[in-house]
Amino acid sequence: MSRPQSPQRPFISFGNPFRMIFPKGSYLSPKLLDLLTTFEETLAGRLKKLKPADKEDVLCLSWMTCAMETLCGIHADIKTLITALELPICDWDDKWIDVYLDNSVKLLDICIAFSSEVSRLKQGHLFLQCVLHNLGNACSNQFIRAHSSMDRWRQHIGSNNPRLGNCFPIMDSLARTLDLPKIKNSAKGKVLMRAMYGVKVVTLHICSIFAASFSGSSKKLMDLEVPETCLWAEAFADFQIFVNTEIRNTYSIKRVISLKEMEDVDTCVKKLYPIVENGVDCVEAAVVKKSALDLEKSAEKLSERLDLLAKEVDGFFQMVLTGRDALLCNLRIDGNNVSNQVIDYNVEGQTVG
Rank of each mutant, 00 (worst) to 15 (best):
P10Q: 07
F11T: 03
I12H: 08
I12W: 10
I12G: 02
I12N: 08
S13E: 11
S13T: 15
P17Q: 07
P17G: 08
P17W: 09
F18V: 09
M20F: 08
I21F: 06
F22C: 06
K24D: 12
K24H: 10
K24M: 08
G25N: 07
S26A: 15
Y27E: 05
L28E: 01
L28R: 05
S29W: 06
P30H: 08
K31D: 14
K31Q: 14
K31F: 12
L32S: 08
L35K: 01
E41D: 13
G45W: 00
L47R: 02
L47H: 07
L47M: 05
K49G: 11
L50G: 04
K51S: 12
P52M: 10
A53I: 06
D54E: 14
K55C: 02
E56N: 07
D57R: 06
D57K: 08
C60E: 10
C60A: 05
C60P: 02
M64C: 00
M64E: 06
T65N: 09
C66L: 12
G73M: 03
G73F: 04
I74F: 01
K79I: 03
T80A: 12
T80K: 13
T80S: 13
T80V: 09
T80R: 12
I82L: 09
I82N: 06
L87H: 06
P88I: 07
C90D: 10
C90V: 15
D91N: 07
W92C: 00
D93W: 04
D93H: 13
D94Q: 09
K95W: 01
I97Q: 01
D98V: 08
D98H: 10
L101C: 04
L101Y: 00
L101H: 01
D102H: 04
N103R: 12
N103Q: 11
S104D: 11
K106Y: 02
D109K: 12
D109G: 01
C111D: 14
I112D: 08
A113L: 03
E117L: 04
E117T: 13
E117K: 14
S119W: 05
S119R: 09
R120S: 11
L121Q: 13
L121S: 07
K122Q: 15
K122M: 15
Q123C: 03
Q123K: 15
L126H: 13
F127S: 14
L128M: 07
L128G: 06
L128T: 09
Q129S: 10
C130L: 13
V131L: 04
V131W: 05
L132C: 07
H133D: 12
H133R: 11
H133I: 13
H133T: 14
N141M: 12
N141R: 11
N141G: 15
Q142D: 10
F143T: 00
